[in-house]
Simulated assay, not measured.
Amino acid sequence: MSEAGNIHFNNEDAHCKEFAKVLNGRVNDYFKSKGISKYGNGEMYFKTVFMLSLFFAPFVAIIYFEPAGWAALGLAILMGIGMAGIGLGIMHDGNHGSYSKHKWVNNLMGYTLNLVGANAMNWKIQHNVKHHTYTNIEDHDEDIEPKAILRFSPATPLKKVHKYQYLYVWFFYSLGTFFWVTIKDFAKITRYKKEGILYKNVKSVLTEYIILIGTKMIYFSWIIGIPVFLTSYTGGEIFLGFFVMHLAAGLGVGVIFQPAHLLPEVEYPEPDENGKMKYSRFVHQLYTSVNFANKSKLVTWYGGGLNFQIEHHLFPHICHVHYSSIAPIVIETAREFNIPYHAKEGFFETMMEHTKMLKWLGTPDSQLVEA
């Protein structure tokens, strides 16, 4: 996809170029020596079936059995966990082109995002283009843009309410997918159209609007329409289940995506007056990303390997099922070239450090600009 902005990475730096050459060579040699593909394998296909089943099976149970009370909410939560799993472990690889060597398969897996209510093209622009290219760069990486009463960057003006964001941030994380499927997609596509970036990344803007509106209509027709017409649940009960499902999904996505670039170790590099960055785009990723819970098979499996955030940002074209295997190569090479490789041991330790980071971002000590 096409890039945007006026940032210029120092891709001609000799040290950065040599590091990238050596690391890419070693990773390529790993796959050649093992005789394996960089794309998905049996583990990936099993995960695809599992996550889709985890999302749809509870929905079928709700429609068929019409459980009441906590049983119904429990099934809605399971749907949310499955929905997050689809986003983290299926559509993410599809939209990066790393699920399969076949473009049509990647597109199909990418569109599982539309299946659960969001829009694949918006995701590609925000995530693949803006986030992966300009990681932790103010005014370029949308992931650190101020959201409502949240502050994710020292360069963002500080407000009094930010003092408490480490307490209320979890609720906003939980609301993430709910806002995405209801409001955010429409705001995003309009924004990208005004910025001109939409024209650079699609063949037809009109087609993308039709896809967005059409898939939204299909999504709400089955996720809301089927319970309305085939069950005896009230409108309020149906909305509650829908909302609870998204709370679970939003939190599941948030605790995996957010800490990887919001921990004390990360940097928020700023360009000079000419828009030039200190490092190459490749090396920039190691200064702005943190791995966590890499020894946890559960976190790695459910989180789509995104706890190996460094490997993902260096090699987004490689399927996440291989990240744990290539991580030692990245660690060794980074050490040789005296380039940082940030990693946290445990999942809960990471959540605590992420909370501390959010708390620090709510203090005057974190300011880089005048409030």
Score class of each variant (00 low, 15 high):
Tyr168Gly: 06
Gln309Phe: 00
Val330Asp: 09
Phe347Ala: 01
Glu43Gln: 14
Ile331Thr: 12
Asn24Asp: 11
Phe46Cys: 12
Glu267Leu: 13
Thr234Pro: 07
Gln285Cys: 11
Ser100Pro: 04
Lys276Val: 06
Ile326Pro: 14
Pro58Ser: 09
Thr288Phe: 07
Asn6Leu: 00
Tyr219Ile: 04
Ile197Cys: 10
Thr231Met: 12
Gly196Tyr: 03
Gly5Gln: 02
Lys159Gly: 08
Gly110Gln: 02
Ile81Val: 14
Trp360Ala: 13
Phe347Trp: 06
Ala248Cys: 06
Ala343Thr: 13
Glu145Tyr: 11
Lys38Leu: 09
Gly176His: 11
Lys344Val: 10
Tyr279Gln: 06
Phe239Leu: 15
Asn114Ser: 15
Val369His: 06
Val169Arg: 07
His131Glu: 07
Ser221Tyr: 00
Leu113Asn: 03
Tyr302Glu: 04
Phe31Lys: 07
Val49Cys: 13
Phe46Ile: 15
Gly214Asp: 06
Pro227Glu: 07
Lys160Ser: 12
Gly25Ile: 02
Ala249Tyr: 05
Asn107Pro: 00
Lys297Asp: 14
Cys16Tyr: 04
Ala68Ile: 05
Phe65Asn: 11
Thr234Trp: 03
Cys319Ile: 04
Asn11Ile: 05
Ala155Arg: 07
Ile63Ser: 10
Phe179Asp: 01
Ser98Tyr: 06
Gly235Thr: 09
Gly305Gln: 04
Glu18His: 10
Thr300Gln: 03
Met245Pro: 01
Gly303Tyr: 01
Ser100Met: 14
Glu345His: 08
Lys34Cys: 08
Val27Tyr: 10
Gly94Met: 05
His92Ala: 06
Lys159Pro: 05
Gly304Ser: 04
Glu353Pro: 03
Ala155Gln: 14
Phe229Trp: 14
Asn106Trp: 11
Gly5His: 03
Tyr39Pro: 00
Gly117His: 10
Tyr341Ser: 00
Ile36Val: 15
Ile331Phe: 12
Tyr39Trp: 11
Asp13Ala: 04
Ile81Arg: 03
Ile331Arg: 15
Tyr279Arg: 09
Phe220Met: 03
Gly42Leu: 07
Gln165Val: 08
Leu306Trp: 11
Ala14Asp: 08
Ile331Gln: 14
Gln367Trp: 04
Ser232Asp: 15
Phe55Ile: 02
Glu138His: 12
Gly69Ile: 11
Ile86Glu: 03
Ile223His: 04
Thr350Tyr: 08
Phe257Gln: 10
Met79Glu: 12
His322Glu: 08
Leu167Asn: 08
Leu230Thr: 15
Asn11Met: 05
Phe348Gly: 02
His127Ala: 05
Ala84Phe: 06
Thr156Gln: 06
Gly305Asp: 02
Ser98Leu: 10
Thr350Gly: 10
Asp141Gln: 08
Thr234Asn: 04
Ala118Ser: 15
Gln309Pro: 00
Ile86Trp: 01
Phe59Val: 02
Asp29Cys: 04
Tyr279Gly: 00
Ser2Trp: 05
Phe292Thr: 10
Phe220Thr: 01
Tyr209Ser: 02
Asn106Pro: 15
Glu66His: 12
Glu265His: 14
His342Ala: 14
Leu108Pro: 05
Asn274Val: 00
Lys163Asn: 09
Tyr64Glu: 14
Lys103Trp: 13
Asp139Trp: 01
Val290His: 00
Met217Val: 15
Ile210Cys: 10
Asp272Ile: 11
Phe220Cys: 02
His342Arg: 15
Asn6Ile: 00
Leu115Gly: 11
Leu167Gly: 04
Thr355Ala: 08
Arg26Gln: 14
